[in-house]
Design a protein around this nucleic acid. Structure first.
Length: 365
DNA sequence: GACTCGTGGGG
DNA sequence: TCCCCAAGAGT
């Protein structure tokens, strides 16, 4: 069974594997960057970011030497910004402790910030040929179906079981290919809904397929509905057309990124803040996994630059065009575009939601 | 163990 | 339109 699974999977992979740019390198750093970018993010989304990143920060040392602000700017739009902060911190550790060479040991990799069980296994197997498993969402789904695992795939006990199982399956002399093959099978063939069993190399071995249960496996635990949160932002323009912007403290949501300051933060520190009694200049909704944000941009006035106040560690005045070159969130990019686009700002209120496909990809650089 | 942390593609 | 869920990690 194990031998058949390995040989079928590897043969299928070697015949059909996508020609992805990061599969053309064995540079552990390049693979590391790719794996971190791919956390909870589709490969298709990652590709252009990875290409730009490798040109901008070609080596561990280049990354370690760069200011965090440059690193966050390169991450703008990718989400989960703690990944960029961890990557930067880890690069400095690798330079200080390992003379710029990523360690080839699973536990040493696992100890670096931003590298958890999956990423450690992926780097160790793909970049260093170690015989270790790497269980991501794809692998969990494939294994739950092939072995008809009935418990929710994200339950801790199930996850332990899946890692143990994957460990016994990994091909001894082709661990990197084996792990990638399992992931690619989950991404392209054994998909969450309507899997393509007719062209799956594991279908003859798959219990879910044999028993007609591919639709109900893996079992999923229901997700709680997102909490609604309205955040009012201040647009404060000086005579030179610069905007007051804040740099968020490094921890938490959007940590280290720049944005229009939250009204509440300014009110806690600025005595002479005046908020115009007019409709919002722009308004947008922005959905996170567990949060439904609603941003409103209100026109306001402030005679002097206020002290920084949480969640901001810095407040500055800056030209809107320059703001888009700093580390900002996708939501901030969209708000900037709305505030600068005549057809939006001449209307009483500019409305856009994160699901409005027309609002995608503003100008950046 | 339960939460938090982004964004976008696809059904 | 809405919902699901991505080559997860940290607290």
């Amino acid at each position: 069974m194990i031998a058949a699974l390995r040989s079928r999977l590897l043969a299928h992979y070697r015949r059909t594997a996508r020609d992805l740019p990061f599969r053309r390198t064995r540079d552990p750093y390049a693979i590391w960057i790719c794996e971190v970018m791919a956390q909870q993010t589709r490969l298709q989304t990652v590709l252009p970011y990875w290409e730009r990143w490798m040109a901008r920060f070609p080596t561990v040392r280049a990354l370690a030497d760069a200011p965090l602000g440059d690193v966050l700017a390169a991450w703008t739009g990718l989400g989960y910004y703690a990944r960029a902060r961890s990557l930067h911190a880890a690069a400095r550790i690798v330079v200080d402790r390992y003379v710029g060479q990523l360690p080839d040991d699973l536990l040493l990799l696992r100890a670096l910030p931003g590298i958890g069980d999956y990423t450690a296994g992926a780097i160790a197997s793909i970049a260093f040929g170690r015989r270790v498993p790497a269980v991501d969402g794809n692998v969990a789904r494939v294994l739950c179906r092939v072995f008809a695992i009935d418990e929710p795939s994200d339950a801790p006990a199930t996850r332990r079981q899946l890692w143990q199982l994957a460990g016994t399956l990994v091909a001894p002399r082709a661990a990197g290919d084996f792990n990638q093959a399992l992931m690619e099978l989950g991404a392209l063939t054994c998909t969450p809904r309507s899997p393509s069993c007719s062209r799956c190399p594991l279908a003859p071995l798959c219990t879910a397929h044999a028993t007609g249960r591919t639709a109900e496996l893996p079992r999923r635990t229901p997700r709680r509905p997102p909490r609604a949160l309205t955040i009012d932002l201040a647009l404060i323009t000086d005579p030179r057309g610069r905007w007051l912007v804040g740099k968020r403290a490094p921890q938490g949501r959007y940590g280290g990124l720049w944005e229009l300051p939250e009204l509440a933060a300014l009110q806690s520190t600025a005595a002479h803040l005046v908020v115009d009694n007019t409709p919002p200049l722009a308004e947008t909704t922005h959905s996170l996994t567990h949060l439904a944000l609603r941003y409103r941009v209100l026109s306001a006035h402030l005679p002097r630059l206020p002290r920084a106040a949480p969640p901001y560690e810095l407040l500055r005045r800056i030209a809107p065009r320059a703001l888009t070159q700093l580390g900002v969130s996708a939501a901030t990019l969209r708000l900037i575009a709305m505030l600068q686009t005549p057809s939006w700002t001449t209307a009483p209120i500019a409305h856009r939601s994160s699901s409005a496909k027309a609002s995608r990809k503003s100008s950046r650089g």
